[in-house]
C-alpha cells in the first residue's frame, strides 16, 4: 500500500530583499495510511507552508510531494482529502447548516440529511440554524470538522485543531480525531498542543527551519527518561549557570525547577544548588515527554533557545515590577 503522504527533498524558497529564504529545506516525510501523524515545530518552522504545498495551493521550488500516491495539487485527490485551517473563518451571514450545504455543493453533494447528520455528530444539532457569527470558537471549530467530513475523506489535514479552545471543546475535538482513526482515515495534524499530540498521535515529525529534526513512532522517540529537581531559595544567577543544551531551567521567586535527561547525575546539580544557598524540595525521575523531545530537537537552534530564555527573563521582570 502506498504512503498517504510522502515528500522527497522538498524545498520551498521565497525571494526576499536580503536574498532567497528556504522556508522548507530538503523535507522528507512519510505518513502511513490509517495513522494519526503529528507535524510539530516552532512558529516559522515551515509547517503551514508544507501543508499548503501538500494541498496544492502553493508550489514547491524543488523536490517531490505526493498525497495518496499522486502528485500534490492533483485535483483528483481533492475528492479524497479534507483540510481544516488554523483559526478558520466562515461566511458569517450563513448558518452552520448553510455552511455545510455550501461546502457540500463544492463536492457536488446535495444531501441535506448528510449535512445535518454531520452537524449532529459534532454536537451542533441544536445550533445548526443559527448564524455562524453567533458561534463560539469551539463551535466554529466543530463546524470546520463537520465540513471536513463531507466527502468521507481518506486523509484529513488539521492545522491547530485544538488551538485556543476551552478544555471541554479540547477533549471533544480530540475524541473526534481518535474516531477518525478508528474509521480508517489518515489524520495529519499540525499542532503546538504537545500533550494532545502525545495522547493521540501514532507517529510524529518535528521540523525546525524547514528541516525534519526528528521523525518516528512516539514510543521509539520517547525512549529514556528525565529527572526533575525542584529547589527553593535559589539565586537568579544559578539558573544561568545550570542552563545548557540539555538542561532546562526555570526560576520564579527563588523556586527553581531543573529538568535534565536521566543520564545526568542529579547529585552534582543538588550540590551546586546547596552551595548557592538553595534548599532541595524534591528530585523526581519521570518518563520522557513529547515536550522534552521537542525542546531537545529544536534546542540547538539559537532562536528557539533565545525564545525560552526570553520568556523566563520577561516573567522575572514582570514580577519585579
Amino acid at each position: 500500500m502506498s504512503l498517504a503522504i510522502e515528500t522527497r527533498d522538498l524545498v520551498k524558497t521565497y525571494k526576499s530583499r536580503s536574498g532567497p529564504i528556504n522556508v522548507v529545506s530538503n523535507l522528507n516525510l512519510q505518513v502511513e495510511p490509517g495513522e494519526i501523524f503529528g507535524f510539530l515545530g516552532p512558529n516559522g518552522a515551515g509547517k503551514t507552508t508544507t501543508i499548503k504545498i501538500l494541498l496544492g495551493v502553493i508550489y514547491q521550488t524543488t523536490g517531490d510531494a505526493y498525497v495518496l500516491g499522486k502528485e500534490a495539487g492533483d485535483i483528483a485527490i481533492h475528492k479524497q482529502i479534507s483540510y481544516l485551517p488554523e483559526k478558520p473563518y466562515y461566511y458569517e451571514h450563513m448558518t452552520g447548516l448553510e455552511i455545510m450545504q455550501f461546502y457540500a455543493s463544492l463536492f457536488g453533494i446535495h444531501d441535506l440529511k448528510k449535512c445535518k447528520d454531520l452537524l449532529e455528530r459534532v454536537n451542533l444539532g441544536n445550533d445548526m440554524n443559527r448564524p455562524i457569527s453567533q458561534y463560539s470558537k469551539g463551535m466554529q471549530q466543530r463546524v470546520g470538522l463537520a465540513q471536513s467530513l463531507l466527502n468521507d475523506p481518506k486523509l484529513l489535514f488539521l492545522d491547530e485543531p485544538t488551538g485556543g479552545l476551552d478544555p471541554i471543546a479540547h477533549i471533544e475535538i480530540r475524541d473526534l480525531i481518535l474516531q477518525f482513526r478508528d474509521e480508517g482515515k489518515t489524520v495529519f495534524i499540525s499542532s503546538h498542543e504537545l500533550s494532545d499530540v502525545e495522547r493521540i498521535c501514532d507517529r510524529v515529525a518535528i521540523i525546525n527551519k524547514g528541516e525534519v529534526v526528528a521523525q518516528g513512532r512516539l514510543e521509539e522517540l520517547l525512549i529514556g527518561g528525565r529527572i526533575e529537581l525542584t529547589a527553593n531559595g535559589c539565586p537568579d544567577d544559578l539558573a544561568t549557570r545550570l542552563r545548557d543544551e540539555d538542561t532546562l531551567v526555570s526560576i520564579n521567586h527563588g523556586r527553581m525547577i531543573v529538568d535534565v535527561p536521566d543520564t545526568h547525575n542529579p547529585d552534582q546539580i543538588a550540590k551546586m544548588v546547596q552551595a548557592a544557598g538553595g534548599e532541595i524540595v524534591s528530585i523526581i525521575p519521570r518518563r520522557k515527554r513529547l515536550e522534552d523531545l521537542f525542546l531537545e530537537a529544536v534546542t540547538g537552534d539559537n532562536i528557539a533557545k533565545g525564545r525560552r530564555l526570553d520568556r523566563i527573563v520577561e516573567k522575572q521582570g514582570e514580577e519585579k515590577n
Binding site: K52, V57, H78, Y83, P85, K87, Q147, F157
Partner: peptide, 14 residues
C-alpha cells in the same frame, strides 16, 4: 486573508 480560499481550493475546485 480570511483563509477561506484554502478550505475552498482544497476541495475539488479549480
Amino acid at each position: 486573508e480570511r483563509r477561506t480560499i484554502y478550505t475552498i481550493l482544497s476541495k475539488p475546485v479549480r
